[in-house]
Amino acid sequence: MASSGSGSDFAALLRAWRDRLSPADAGFTVTDRRRAPGLRREELAQLAGLSVDYLLRLEQGRARNPSPQIVGALARALQLSRAERDQLYRSAGLLPPRDGTVSAHVPPGIQRLAARLGDLPIGVFTADWTLVWWNTMWSALFGDPAVVPAPERNLARALFGNGPARGSMLSVRSERGPDAFAASIVADLKDAVSRYPEDTQLDRLVRELRGTSDAFARHWTTETSAAQHTTDRKTIRHPEIGDILLDCDVLIVPGADLRMVTYTAATGSDGAGKLELLRVTGGRGATTPPPLSVADRCDRAR
């Protein structure tokens, strides 16, 4: 049952919190030509995965009854505290997320940290491996997650499902092998179920995959403990650049039950060069550059 809320209150909060958020904290370049200190409407729309027109209607109070998914995306994009997030939900006539369920709230400090590492692909996942935050380099490497329906932005569905998540995922090969990587994701889900037994969406995800994927069901039966994530080397097959060999690290966010996934490469390596190409081109129309000669490397080092 939804709580009472006012569309005008929701619109006013959106405008006020958009004006409050520094573009630099959200990962945007600040120039002297910017007239207002806060985010532009198109920037917030980009961060939340919404159209600018729909965001305009929300801020003007003309669009009513936003879904919980939209309110959650706006709360993350605006870098709200938990109390502010709950206030935004109530102003939209919705009940805030319950305690004891998988949280999709990304603390503002984590978003600011990730935004300052904008040269690296970074994605933030919840305890059930749903992608809830990513930067432009993540989109350049893996494709824009915003084009995939929100429920499908889940790594377990990408690995074991038959929906858009699987079709949208680029070919990723782990040096540990596909079976070990899949097993670690299932082990994480088993651990999440033990900690969030009342979460209906998590229960639905597990039931769905156990019923449709023999591989998931096999791992679910055999995996007995949560995986310890360590550095892994992965090859990502990019449609424009080709194979990119990168180090993948999973960083656990204490107190938030989130996983920050980062991809890096050693300075001067082929992977580093391809990441730089992705940063410059956004992954669109890029071609693999020829290897740098010794003279070129010396020039770049100066």
Rank of each mutant, 00 (worst) to 15 (best):
T281N: 07
V294C: 00
R210H: 10
Q228C: 05
D270T: 12
E84A: 10
G255A: 03
T130D: 14
A75K: 01
A63H: 00
A73S: 15
A73Q: 09
T281I: 11
A2D: 14
I110G: 00
V132P: 03
T262E: 02
S139G: 15
R173H: 10
S194N: 12
I244Q: 01
P37M: 13
Y196M: 03
S213T: 09
P97Y: 07
S171H: 07
I185S: 05
P239A: 08
R15D: 10
D53W: 02
N154I: 06
G161I: 04
C298R: 13
C298D: 14
D25L: 09
D199A: 10
L120R: 15
L170S: 08
W17P: 01
K190H: 08
T212L: 11
D86L: 04
L117P: 03
T130L: 03
V102G: 11
A286H: 02
A295M: 09
V132S: 12
D179E: 15
L21M: 11
R297Q: 12
R112F: 01
L50S: 04
L277E: 13
W133L: 15
A16R: 15
L74Y: 07
E175G: 10
A301P: 09
L74R: 06
S194C: 07
N135W: 05
G167C: 06
L275M: 09
R98Q: 13
A75C: 09
Q228T: 14
A83F: 05
N162S: 14
L74T: 08
H105C: 03
G109K: 04
P149C: 08
V147Y: 00
S3F: 11
S171I: 04
E152T: 03
V148F: 02
D257R: 14
M169T: 14
R300H: 08
P239G: 07
Q87D: 11
A2W: 01
D144E: 09
G167H: 12
S4F: 08
G38Q: 08
M137D: 03
C298G: 02
R218Q: 14
D296E: 15
A295R: 12
A180W: 03
P66C: 08
I236D: 00
Q69A: 15
L189S: 05
V102R: 09
I110P: 00
G283I: 05
G282K: 08
E276L: 08
G100P: 11
S6V: 05
F181G: 00
R259G: 01
A192T: 13
A2N: 14
P254H: 06
A301C: 06
A75Q: 01
Q111I: 11
H238F: 05
A192K: 07
S269D: 06
G38S: 10
V71Q: 05
P96C: 06
G143C: 08
G5I: 11
L209T: 04
R176G: 10
R62C: 02
W220A: 07
L44G: 02
P289F: 15
R302A: 07
T281K: 09
G285A: 09
L258H: 08
G177N: 06
V193M: 12
A150L: 11
V253R: 01
L56F: 11
E276A: 15
M169W: 01
L50F: 10
G177Q: 04
W134R: 06
